[in-house]
């Protein structure tokens, strides 16, 4: 199926899969880490300001 160009097709697909999967994993890990850090701060009694102001996350 890949023929004589397999040596170019396989790396092209492998790099694409690695970059997209890596980006997805990095994004998910960051999400979990930030949720955990927020939970830790809340446990310490730090309350976030209510989102009353524009631009305030």
């Amino acid at each position: 199926m890949l023929g004589q160009y397999a040596a170019y097709i396989v790396p092209a697909y492998a790099v694409s899969a690695a970059v997209i999967a890596g980006l997805t994993a990095w994004t998910l890990l960051q999400y979990r880490r930030r949720l955990r850090e927020i939970a830790t701060l809340e446990e310490k009694g730090v309350r976030r300001r209510a989102a009353t102001r524009k631009g305030d996350g």
Binding site: Y31, R34, I38, L41, K44, V46, R47, R49, D56, G57
Partner: peptide, 15 residues
């Protein structure tokens, strides 16, 4: 993630 980063930043500043 970016919204959570901002939330975390403002909580840390408050703390």
């Amino acid at each position: 993630n970016e919204i959570l980063r901002r939330r975390l930043r403002s909580m840390r500043m408050l703390a």
